[in-house]
């Protein structure tokens, strides 16, 4: 049973900043996530890959047969499937990241009591938050890679720029995951989690996902352009066909700011989130 204790020693405080919240060991949270996936829930992981693929086959190929060619980001004619495929990838990055940072965190916190375990060890809440966000992004990376391969196989990725859709998807997921976790810290009941769904569904349907923004009157356009998903859709759509310009950088900047703001919010709210 290990060494005999000659009484417990007195400790010297660790003067690092955030020493009470962070022990520089997020990799343990990641190791746990990977092992749990391998042991118990890899089927759930696989099913998540198919969602955007099924949408693409149904709406892009099926509905696309009725729609025909549409104007792409640079004004050139592209197939309807090629038009909506990057948008579906952005939606999938958003949904996955939001699910992982809200429902999943809320469940592990309040029902599986997983974080209770972790926080009774040397881990601090910041280790847990970083580990969980990393796992969400890793999952997003794998899905985005798979989806991009499917797009290429269907002939929907027409430019080498399309490869950059993978890291761009991860950035989109990062923005949503960071903000999502911050928002979860304000949630106390399961019913409140439904509000997140209320916000996501209209954003999915109306963020120029399935048709161009120009169908809306001016004030509605401004509103949509203020929301995050539109920037993700536009970012990936431009990369998909290689129409890259200052606007692309603008969309990137939107997500960098969103991720940074989300991380600050999450860090400030860590005690509220994990140490209730």
């Amino acid at each position: 049973m290990g060494p005999v204790h000659d009484g417990a020693p007195h400790l010297v405080p660790d003067g690092r900043p955030l020493a009470g919240l962070y022990s520089r060991n997020a990799r343990a949270v990641i190791a746990r996530g990977l092992l749990a996936t391998r042991t118990s829930n890899w089927t759930v992981m696989v099913s998540g890959f198919f969602e955007p693929v099924l949408y693409l086959l149904s709406m892009g190929i099926g509905l696309g047969a009725l729609v025909g060619e549409v104007a792409g980001p640079g004004g050139q004619e592209i197939s309807y499937a090629a038009y909506i495929a990057p948008a579906l990838l952005a939606v999938s990055a958003m949904n996955g990241a939001v699910y992982d940072s809200t429902w999943n965190v809320f469940f592990k916190l309040n029902f599986a009591k997983l974080y209770q375990n972790m926080l009774y060890t040397s881990l601090g809440p910041l280790d847990v938050a970083i580990g969980e966000i990393f796992l969400a992004l890793l999952r997003g990376f794998l899905y985005a890679t798979g989806f991009t391969v499917v797009m290429a196989a269907l002939g929907l990725a027409t430019s080498p720029w399309a490869l950059l859709m993978v890291p761009a998807s991860v950035l989109i997921a990062f923005g949503f995951a960071a903000v999502g976790m911050g928002i979860t810290s304000f949630m106390t009941r399961f019913q409140q989690m439904d509000w997140i769904g209320f916000a996501l569904l209209p954003m999915f349907l109306f963020s120029a996902t399935f048709y161009p923004l120009t169908v809306y009157p001016e004030p509605v356009r401004w509103f949509i352009q203020a929301l995050p998903l539109w920037h993700g859709v536009e970012l990936l759509r431009q990369l998909g066909v290689g129409q890259v310009g200052p606007a692309t950088l603008g969309h990137l900047a939107y997500y960098l700011v969103m991720a940074a703001a989300g991380l600050v919010l999450t860090t400030v709210r860590l005690r509220a989130l994990f140490l209730r």
Binding site: L11, S40, A112, T121, G124
Partner: peptide, 25 residues
């Protein structure tokens, strides 16, 4: 409260309800 990770490195905790990680062996 201020040095949580450092203090807990020397603590063992058995909570009231077993909260073993059901997803792991």
């Amino acid at each position: 409260e201020r040095q949580g990770p450092e203090v807990r490195a020397h603590l063992g905790v058995v909570p009231q309800q077993d909260n073993l990680d059901e997803e792991l062996r």
